[in-house]
């Protein structure tokens, strides 16, 4: 992608995001979200987070080629357990990264 197309893409995403954020705030007249749209939007955030997490934990990507990453999967599972029980971001971070480094240095995968 060339520079111009990159900036156009980024600008359009920024504009769309601003439109979503400002849809009910910026216009002077107050509007309301329809129940149908609210119903559909309810599960978008959790689905987006879960899909992004899975894609980045399960695969290592290089030049558009995806490879299953067993070390990242094992470290991700450990981090999940720590996040679930500790609810502490620092602990999740330390255990996840620590497990990955340990597994990589052991060369098990």
């Amino acid at each position: 992608m060339d520079d111009t197309l990159f900036y156009i893409t980024v600008f359009i995403i920024g504009l769309i995001t601003l439109i979503f954020r400002g849809a009910f705030i910026v216009p002077d007249k107050a509007h309301h979200l329809s129940n149908k749209l609210e119903f559909f939007l309810e599960y978008i955030p959790i689905s987006a987070m879960a899909a992004l997490t899975a894609a980045h934990v399960f695969y290592t990507q290089s030049g558009g080629v995806y490879e299953v990453a067993p070390d990242k999967i094992a470290a991700g599972l450990l981090a999940f357990i720590v996040a679930y029980f500790s609810k502490n971001i620092l602990a999740t971070f330390i255990v996840g990264m620590g497990a990955l480094w340990a597994l990589q240095s052991l060369g098990l995968f």
């Binding site: 959790i46 987070m49 997490t53 980045h56 934990v57 999940f80 996040a83 996840g96 990955l100 990589q104």
Partner: peptide, 20 residues
């Protein structure tokens, strides 16, 4: 070799867990 890009899914994971 530090694989710091892995910190990103860890943060996503942390934000996903409380939603479950």
């Amino acid at each position: 070799s530090w694989s710091l890009e892995f910190s990103l899914p860890l943060v996503f994971l942390f934000f996903t867990v409380p939603l479950l």
